[in-house]
């Protein structure tokens, strides 16, 4: 329990640090977001008083550009604490409602990609380890290395051009079929999965390679352990050895990679959702950049970061369940 409390405190601290960082980017940096907004407002309304412009900026991003630093910081943080991310100039509504409509889709896409990628990488790596040195092993290693050197957005472009527009197998853009109304219907859910195939495939194909190789390395190492030999001598069934003895221990070190890849994918969603015209959170962050909509840009940045912090927190909490050594206070294992 002690470990859990410490870990929660850590996550909260990280969120606070990111919020402070975002404040710094808006307010402290010369040419920061607040400065950009003030300049634009001044340019658009040359005759308006400075005070009025400052109030306009403040309404949008909760930072009064003329207030002293500590006051501005307090305003910004209390705004965030109340869950108010400001007003989006481009969308014409609050940043919160833009994000509320987009975030579930990004999480949906990330969840599919992560689960499928790890399922493929782990099983493939284990099979390669069992057939170490065979033609299958060598061939799959080569393919894994090659696919891994393709950036995910390059794969996305190839998929869109050749699978999306070339054939009509998979839809190349959008979140769900335009002819279907959102709701708990087979058509809608099936359509949503159908539309998620190409975006998640872009992540999976380019990301599974090194994971599979790492799994292969771990499995080979575990296969050489004494307890596996003993299990064989005891006459345990192969299936049981493969799953309970080898698989479980080989997967443990992969957990960190899982956490890292969640952050990587959330970040990559900006490019991928733009290419697939998939209105998730990355898509809106890109719109915000394109139209220099600072509140929306900082809001989506904060939400993506907090999402990653939460995902890692959940991952860490469940890691304790998988590996009891973490909680027993044996600190050196935690790395």
């Amino acid at each position: 329990m002690n470990w859990f409390i410490r870990r929660t405190g850590h996550a909260l601290f990280t969120i606070w640090a990111v919020a402070t960082l975002s404040f710094g980017l808006i307010r402290l940096m010369p040419g920061g977001a607040a400065q950009i907004m003030t300049n634009r407002a001044t340019r658009n309304n040359p005759n308006v008083d400075r005070e009025v412009i400052a109030r306009m900026v403040r309404e949008q991003i909760q930072i009064d550009p003329n207030a002293p630093l500590h006051v501005a910081y307090y305003q910004y943080m209390s705004g965030l604490a109340q869950g108010d991310l400001g007003h989006s100039h481009w969308a014409g509504e609050s940043v919160n409602s833009v994000i509320a409509g987009a975030l579930p889709w990004t999480v949906f896409l990330m969840a599919i990609s992560t689960v499928a990628m790890f399922a493929i990488a782990l099983s493939l790596g284990a099979i390669m380890a069992y057939r170490e040195g065979s033609g299958f092993d060598l061939g799959m290693t080569g393919i894994a290395i090659f696919f891994n050197s393709i950036p995910y957005y390059v794969a996305a472009v190839v998929f869109i051009v050749f699978l999306g527009h070339g054939t009509s197998l998979f839809p190349p853009r959008g979140r769900y079929p335009s002819s279907v109304d959102p709701g708990f219907t087979v058509d809608f859910i099936g359509g949503a999965f159908h539309h998620a195939v190409l975006p998640s495939a872009s992540f999976i194909v380019t990301g599974y390679g090194l994971l599979a190789l790492a799994m292969r390395g771990n499995s080979i190492q575990v296969l050489g352990e004494d307890y596996v030999r003993v299990a064989r001598l005891r006459g345990l069934p192969d299936r049981r050895i493969a799953l309970r003895y080898v698989g479980r221990n080989a997967i443990l070190p992969m957990y960190t990679s899982l956490l890292i890849s969640i952050g990587f994918m959330f970040g990559g969603s900006i490019i991928l959702e733009e290419l697939f015209a998939y209105p998730g959170i990355g898509f809106y962050m890109f719109r915000a950049i394109e139209f220099r909509d600072m509140p929306l840009m900082m809001g989506t940045f904060l939400v993506i970061t907090v999402g990653v912090v939460l995902a890692i927190f959940i991952g860490d909490a469940t890691y304790g369940k998988l590996d009891p050594r973490i909680k027993s206070g044996d600190e050196s294992e935690a790395y």
Partner: peptide
Amino acid sequence: TLSDIAMTIPGLPLVIVLMVL
């Protein structure tokens, strides 16, 4: 603690925000 925080922040969004600014 610093490197934990830096590790958690997703790279690309941070880089994009910095590039824009």
